[in-house]
Amino acid sequence: MAPVSATQETDERRSVVLLVEDELLLRWPTGEYLRDAGYRVIETASASEAIAVLASGTRVDLVFSDVNLAEAMNGHALASWLANNHPRIPMLLTSADRHELHRIIVGATRATLSKPYDLSAVAERIREMLSR
C-alpha cells in the first residue's frame, strides 16, 4: 500500500459528515460536537436538502440521518436514494422508534443507532464506519 501523504491525512481528519435532522435543537449540538471532533459538518433539515447538497457535487464522506423527518421523504427513502445514486457513501441512521430501526437493512455501508444517543457514541460510530 502506498504511504499516506500529509495531504491525505489532512483530508482524512476533515472528513465531511452530512447531517440530516429536522429538530434544530438536536441538529445544532450534534453538528457542533462533530466539528469539535474534527469533522466538517454540513447541516440539513430534510431529505430534500440532503439530496440538494449531494446533487451539487459537494464532497460528502458519510451521511448521518434521522429516520423520522418532518417532510414527506423520510430516512428510509433517503437511504434508498443514496444506495441508488451514491452507493459508496456510508450512512448511519437513527431513530427513537426501535421498530423503524429494525426495518433498516444494515450492511457494509449502512448502520443504525438508537435515539436518544450520546454524542460521543455518534462520533465513535462515525469514526468506525469511515475507517472501514
Partner: peptide
Amino acid sequence: DVLARMVIAEYLRDCGYKVIEAVGSTE
C-alpha cells in the same frame, strides 16, 4: 436555501463565529 446556508455558515465559522443554522422562523 441549503446551498446558500452551507456556504455562508462555513465561512462565518472559519472567521471564528459560532453559527446556528435555521431554515425558518419557528427554529
